[in-house]
Design a protein around this nucleic acid. Structure first.
Lengths: 220, 220
DNA sequence: TAGATTGTTAATCGATTAACAATC
DNA sequence: TAGATTGTTAATCGATTAACAATC
């Protein structure tokens, strides 16, 4: 999806749709690397991802020439370059807001660390949840009144929003007030933010409905 | 988002990018309806979603004229039309494959029913999990060897894939073998399917990396 | 009626692809 | 060298927007 613009203010002249493909390339390269591959080509990568080789070369050319004629790309080199371009050659501390089933699942997810992120804090306003620690983590659920303080103390700029839809906007306002700059919104609702805050949406139903259009009329 | 094509075989001549926006419109209309609104306009909807009014009118015009000059759109009527177009004027039974934290969070998610979906079965291959029932649901975790049978008995055509990346492809092959036609893949890996199977991806890290590109270089 | 807003056409804008010289 | 593949240019394709007649 990739449906709503990331933000109204784009600090580069590289098309946002190109930026959106870079993480896909990075993920594929990591897979190739794990499979022991050392070189690849735009043709191979394209066939694997269902993207034309020309598009991959064009996308990468916005950032420089990373390949070698006749040979292709060094997988490790290209992965490192993409990590730098996407600024995930470091670990970004993140806040999870909402400690329901989804927030907890995200807190336990082991796939962030290797890809540039780390869950630094979890918040919820339910007093029964505050103070609970999350199994297999160092995390303790904090109350929202401590949000700003904890965010500042940990240099957090990214929040994952996992609260019920009816609270999403008011909680978003708190995130913005605490100078959060990027929000991954799991609530199935549009949120309104200042133009210097980036928002991406994850709503499984949106993706499911996209597919049911094509599935057509006769479910068994 | 919306980065990989939904499928190589498109059964209509309406652009897939248009189809991808319809669920967003539907979600916004439901919100408006919940807020008690009875009419809206392409201008209002567009401002709310950050989309031009012309685009909304153009998108809808692929399916007919649902508005009234001078007045706009009846919210309930347009919502019903979009539900029909997207084939969510019914409930699609779905299988969840993988009963880890994420699979369980999905099984407990209360947001499917009102939007055209229902979790009909949950599967896992871990014998310690098989037979467990999921709190507040009618669901009992089934072993994968029963997948085909349960899928057929329940008329399931959609699966949500929530297994570790290293098992995603082999499990996908099992889904395809059981005639699953649409897969929502939560594993952070590209999966390969026949061209008549639709796949959508949800990978939070992809969305996060899209945003860190813009966040730039100095995390505090 | 006057004001508002649709549905649609044509113009613009931008993204993708094809092709190929350069070169490893 | 011959074969392969890059990076880039120009052509094509497709999506978005502007504009407006129709009309509620």
């Amino acid at each position: 999806m990739v449906v709503q613009k990331v933000a109204s203010h784009m600090p580069t002249d590289i098309p946002d749709i190109v930026i959106g493909r870079l993480p896909i390339y990075l993920r594929a390269l990591t897979q190739l690397l794990n499979a022991g591959r050392t070189v690849t080509s735009s043709r191979e990568l394209g066939e694997y991802l269902g993207i034309s080789s020309a598009q991959i070369r064009k996308d990468l050319s916005h950032f420089g020439g990373f390949g070698k004629q006749g040979t292709g790309y060094d997988v490790a080199v290209l992965r490192d370059k993409l990590q730098q371009i996407l600024h995930v050659d470091r670990q970004w501390p993140m806040a999870i807001v909402g400690a329901g089933d989804l927030g907890r699942a995200l807190a336990h997810y082991r796939g962030f660390e290797s890809r540039g992120f780390r869950v630094a804090a979890v918040f919820d306003n339910d007093e029964r949840k505050v103070g609970q620690s999350l199994a297999d983590t160092e995390l303790v659920i904090e109350p929202m009144r401590r949000f700003k303080e904890v965010v500042q103390a940990n240099g957090i700029e990214i929040a994952m929003l996992a609260v019920p839809a009816e609270h999403a906007q008011s909680v978003t306002d708190q995130l913005v007030d605490a100078c959060i700059r990027a929000i991954l919104n799991y609530a199935p609702i549009n949120i309104i933010v200042p133009s210097n805050v980036y928002v991406q949406y994850i709503d499984p139903v949106i993706e499911l409905q996209h597919m049911t259009f094509y599935l057509g009329h006769q479910p068994k």
